[in-house]
Computed example of a mutant assay.
Amino acid sequence: MRTKSTYILVFLTYLVFASSFTHVPVPPKDKFIVVLDAGHGGHDPGKQTRSGLREKDIALKITLDVGRELEKNSAIEVIYTRKKDEFIDLEERGAIANRAKADLFVSIHCNAHSSQASGAETYVLGLHRNQTNFEVAKSENSVIFLESNYEEKYSQYDVNSPESVIGLTLMQEEYLEQSIYLAGLVQDNFRQKLKRQDRSVKQAGFIVLHQTIMPSVLIETGFITNTSEGKFLSTSSGQSAIANAIADAVVDYEEHVGVNELLGISSTEPVAEVSDVIYKDVTFKVQLAASGNNIATRAYNFKGLEEVTKNKEGRLYKYYYGATSNYTEINNKLTKAKEKGFSTAYIVCFKNGIKTPVEDILN
Rank of each mutant, 00 (worst) to 15 (best):
E269Q: 06
Y123L: 15
L125W: 12
N244Q: 15
D57N: 13
L185N: 05
Q239V: 10
A120F: 02
K333M: 14
E269H: 06
S240D: 15
F21P: 04
L305Q: 06
G230A: 11
E177H: 08
D37Q: 06
A249S: 15
N244S: 15
G205Q: 07
P28C: 04
L218K: 11
V24P: 02
S275Q: 12
E339Q: 13
Q287E: 15
V250A: 02
F302N: 08
N332A: 13
A243N: 12
N260C: 03
L316H: 05
D30C: 04
V358G: 11
N301R: 12
T49H: 01
Y123E: 14
A59C: 05
E174G: 01
L60R: 02
I108R: 02
G94V: 14
K318W: 05
F105D: 06
E307R: 14
S139C: 00
R2Q: 13
H109Q: 04
I295T: 12
S114W: 03
H23T: 15
P162L: 05
V136W: 00
S20G: 08
G314T: 11
S266C: 07
I62C: 06
V208P: 06
I330P: 05
A272L: 06
T169P: 00
V217R: 05
K153M: 09
E121L: 09
A59S: 14
L194K: 00
T49I: 01
T324G: 09
E55C: 06
N244W: 07
Q187F: 02
I213S: 14
F105P: 04
I108G: 01
L15Y: 12
L70P: 08
R82T: 14
N311S: 13
R50P: 00
D252L: 04
G304W: 10
S5D: 13
G167P: 00
N352G: 14
V78Q: 05
Y80V: 09
V35C: 11
K101R: 13
V282N: 06
Y327D: 10
E163D: 08
I295G: 07
S19Q: 09
I224S: 06
I219G: 05
F223T: 03
M171L: 13
Y14I: 15
M214I: 12
T344Q: 11
S240I: 11
A337K: 13
L125P: 11
F32K: 04
V16T: 14
K280W: 01
N141F: 00
Q48N: 02
E359G: 14
A272S: 10
I76T: 01
V277M: 11
L362I: 15
A241E: 15
L334D: 10
G39C: 04
K29L: 08
G258R: 01
K83A: 12
V124F: 14
E339K: 12
A183I: 11
I278T: 12
T212Y: 07
F206C: 07
R315P: 00
F145L: 10
T268H: 03
S179E: 06
N332V: 04
E273T: 14
S216E: 05
K29Q: 15
D30N: 12
T49N: 01
R50S: 11
V24D: 07
I96H: 04
S161K: 00
S51G: 03
